[in-house]
Amino acid sequence: MAVYKAGMRLKSAVCSSQIMMVVAPARDVKLTCGGAPVVELSAAEGAGASIDPGHKQGTQMGKRYTNAAGDIEILCTKPGEGGLAVDGEMLVVKGAKPLPSSD
C-alpha cells in the first residue's frame, strides 16, 4: 500500500512497463502492474518474478488508464506485457474522443 503524488514516475517489477501518475488518489492504494506492486523508476531491476497470468492485459505507450471511480489516472510512458490494477481492480484505457488538431 502506498500514497502516490501526481507527477511520480514508477515502473513494473515484472515487465517493461513504465508509468507516470497523472491524477493520484487521495488515499492509500495498492497499485500493481502484472500483478506485482509497482516500484520507483530508479529502483533496481526485479528478481525476475513473472507476470501473474490474470494480469496480462498489457500497457500501451501514451495511453491513459483509469478506474471505475475515476479518482486515478496513469499515463503509460513505456509499454509492457503486464496490466495495471488498483486494489485488485483492473484499470481500463481512458476513452478519449480524438480532437481535431488546433495548434
Binding site: 507527477g7 505507450m61 501514451g62 491513459r64 499515463l75 478519449a96 480532437l99 488546433s102
Partner: peptide, 24 residues
C-alpha cells in the same frame, strides 16, 4: 506550470497520432 501544459497535451493530443509524413 508544467501541470497546465502537460494536462493540455495529454487531454487533447493522441501520442504518435500523426502519420510518418505529416507536417505542420
Amino acid at each position: 506550470r508544467q501541470k497546465h501544459l502537460v494536462s493540455y497535451v495529454l487531454g487533447t493530443v493522441e501520442f504518435m497520432g500523426a502519420d510518418e509524413n505529416d507536417a505542420s
